[in-house]
Design a protein around this nucleic acid. Structure first.
Lengths: 193, 193
DNA sequence: TCCTTAACGGGACTGCAGTTCCTTTTCGGA
DNA sequence: TCCGAAAAGGAACTGCAGTCCCGTTAAGGA
């Protein structure tokens, strides 16, 4: 592997093209030949380095996982979860990013390698925000037995659910409800492990 | 259109084959030629009657929407939501049905016609269970301003979220938490419209 | 039972994704 | 600056999905 120079340029050109293609056509709407055309690189190169659409999408997700999304710290559980909900909402409601995430989830249902990459991606995101809930426990807002990751996931779930099953971007009201519901459920002890 | 006889047999043979193919390969893993082969019908027929994979999947979803899934009536909000959660869990955790629903969601992200059909499907399912929450309001368990459909959706969301983002079937514990969280949030007034 | 017509099915054709083989570029160390 | 290795690119080949044309089957009314 040669990390710098042309090889790297080719990789980023292909991943850019893949993201755009995913946004425009979804995971089933394109193939490696078209990807090579869009990226302006040789078809042979794409087939040699990646070989399948799944591998390309997996590489794209791994690339996305490298950028971090720092947690909020408002001092209250409600504030932190609201911040997280609005961040997720903004991402999924953005036309480009929303379609990209929907396409990634769709691709993961068919390709195990993509599914692994996507699981790693979400594990990383969840673990970045988990401290919000852990801090709430430390402050005495929640029971020490609370499953902190489950609370963070409970915030995202309704927003993804709306995007994926209704095809509609989540609204600010959805985000408010998602954060409120997760906080209320956590306080009620639903997420005790 | 001739609803009875050979035409109907051809349609059900194709929809059966489509469901199996979706389970085995996902929405991107097959095409109409293969579908015709699996169903044992002429390739021309499939291209003439449906034309695209999206149309087939849409037809399949419309067919699924016709079968009803009656609501529970345990007499309490918690009992009804737990029954709903477990029904959804059992569906998504079943190897065949789970893969089918994941594939349907994936297909809907790429094809608007499929997305419409899937939205209709879920609208129907939600409206079948909405009375559980409406009854809880009538019994005085919840505030009359509660958005009943939102409560039902809140039960499903975490289960779908787990299946789609982690690729893992939801567990009984997930179902218990999903129902408990929705009920707790509803009681806390999060779903007032 | 017969006849009309809508729908199914077989087979040849075409375009393009995916493969193969070989040449050209360029990276990076000496 | 030069050289060997490693990766990119070009071009021809192949298999198969999608299309087209026309003959065959069967549904359903008279």
């Amino acid at each position: 592997m040669r990390p710098g120079g042309r090889a790297a340029r080719v990789r980023s050109a292909l991943l850019d093209a893949a993201a755009t293609a995913l946004v425009e056509c979804g995971p089933a709407g394109f193939d490696l030949a078209e990807l090579a055309r869009r990226a302006g690189i040789g078809k042979t190169t794409v087939y040699r380095r990646w070989g399948t659409v799944g591998a390309v999408v997996g590489d794209l997700v791994a690339d996305m996982a490298e950028t971090s999304l720092p947690r909020a710290d408002t001092g209250t559980l409600d504030g932190d979860l609201a911040a997280n909900a609005d961040l997720v909402r903004a991402t999924l409601a953005d036309p480009r990013q929303g379609r990209l995430f929907a396409a990634l989830v769709a691709a993961a249902t068919a390709d195990p390698a993509t599914a692994d990459a996507l699981r790693d991606f979400y594990d990383r995101r969840i673990s970045e925000w988990q401290p919000c809930v852990a801090d709430a426990v430390a402050r005495g807002e929640l029971d020490p037995g609370t499953d902190t990751a489950a609370v963070v996931r409970a915030v995202s779930a309704p927003l993804y659910y709306r995007l994926l099953t209704r095809g509609e971007p989540p609204t600010e009201d959805d985000a408010r409800r998602a954060a409120g519901a997760a906080a209320a459920a956590a306080r009620a002890g639903v997420f005790l492990s």
